[in-house]
Design a protein around this nucleic acid. Structure first.
Lengths: 229, 229
DNA sequence: GTAGTAATTTGAACGCTGTTCATGAGGCGT
DNA sequence: ACGCCTCATGAACAGCGTTCAAATTACTAC
């Protein structure tokens, strides 16, 4: 009734056994991430993975149903690590007693920028993905990871004393983070990376500064009325 | 000395000739745009284009060197049309005597959102593109079209009387537009399109409101000082 | 008209891709 | 020792972008 070689096969430490199924999956994902980083999505080839992992093409399809699933799994790892990086940055500032909202959000954005720069090939692949999923329409683990990022920003905004209820603060967090995201991606689709990093950071500083100032002055509630002042 | 059928071949109106080279190129681009809209970048196949255009595969490669070039040309057309749409929207407001900056920027963003919604398949393809061009590192026609969009926003910002020099106003325009872009794309990578449009618009309203309020209160100059007030 | 010539269209062919599946090898319980 | 079930294997298939020798067409010169 036990599926597979069920009973006495939990000894992995003994000798130099072949890799466990899960270990091999992680190895495949590590290789896939490296391939994506080097050459983008079009560099993720089944045969290359198989060769570098020391297995056959068919075995890759035994571990994952699709190359799409491999790509999605790599993206999940990236998003997960990005969230951890952001949380770590926030914890660092907390430890240093920094409570200023603008400062903390800039640090969060800086963590994001650094992360994107550290994954020049695979991050565009993360963004270009997503489109096709015939599975279910509902939110999945993918969205959960993105929401985790939003929640971190929302937590920072909560410290600032703007007159925001929970719903509106969440909206502001999504808005702010999507904007940072847009700045970073718009900046990196373009030219060389030389002067680009500086431009991106100037834009982020401007955005965050204006955003915080705007929230302080109640700009979040003004819809289309300029003469309210 | 005349290349090809050089001399007497400028009569196109006579009879029902086959399509001119340029006409055929435009037909191919129209087909390509439709294919991209229906199935994204991976739906742009040389054989499909050839079949729908009534020519052979080889002829497609006579008109364009690559499928990449076809894709890039389609993107150019889209960006060009988007710019024209934005300019038209601004002209409409001008004709109505609307000078309010916030109002005009919201109209600009609305034009952008409508345009993206009108091209659900090809717009992600525009964004996911760009990466590979072994040509030259310098800015090309692609960037020129993007800059034209930034210039429109900068023109709107010029009407508002914030204390911004040209350089800083251009930065603000790029920042604002990249943010709108980020909101739109972040919104459309996710779930269904049902409630999504509403969320996107709420975010844009919040962003623009906060941005204008922030500019009015000099948030563009504050770097990390909260107690300036 | 006819021959010659250059341009251009063509589609078969090449190499590559993701994916499948009959085959075979290998560990397990009995 | 035997059967059994599981999993790894890589040849095979369909489809892709791209090329290029050959065929077709369009035009000039006579």
């Amino acid at each position: 009734m036990n599926p597979g070689r069920g009973a006495g096969s939990e000894d992995k430490d003994r000798k130099s056994m072949a890799l466990d199924k899960e270990e091999m999956s992680e190895k495949v994902l590590a290789i896939a991430e490296a391939l994506l980083n080097e050459g983008g999505a079009e560099n993720l080839k089944a045969r290359t993975i198989a060769e570098q992992a020391g297995i056959s093409v068919g075995s890759v399809y035994n571990l994952f149903t699709d190359l799409d699933e491999v790509h999605r799994a790599v993206n999940m790892r990236l998003l997960d690590r990005l969230g951890a990086t952001g949380l770590a940055a926030m914890a660092d500032l907390e430890r240093q007693g920094v409570t200023d909202v603008q400062h903390r959000i800039l640090a969060m954005a800086a963590a994001y920028v650094r992360f994107v720069e550290a994954h020049p090939g695979s991050w565009p692949a993360v963004l270009a993905f997503n489109r096709r999923r015939a599975t279910r329409p509902g939110p999945d683990a993918y969205d959960a990871l993105l929401d985790a990022l939003f929640d971190i920003v929302a937590g920072v905004l909560k410290a600032g004393d703007f007159g925001l209820d929970d719903k509106r603060r969440a909206l502001a967090a999504r808005t702010l983070w999507s904007s940072v995201h847009g700045i970073v991606t718009s900046g990196y689709v373009a030219n060389s990376n030389n002067r680009q990093a500086e431009e991106i950071w100037h834009q982020i500083e401007l955005l965050v500064g204006v955003f915080v100032k705007g929230l302080e002055h109640g700009g979040a509630f003004a819809h289309a009325e300029t003469k309210s002042e």
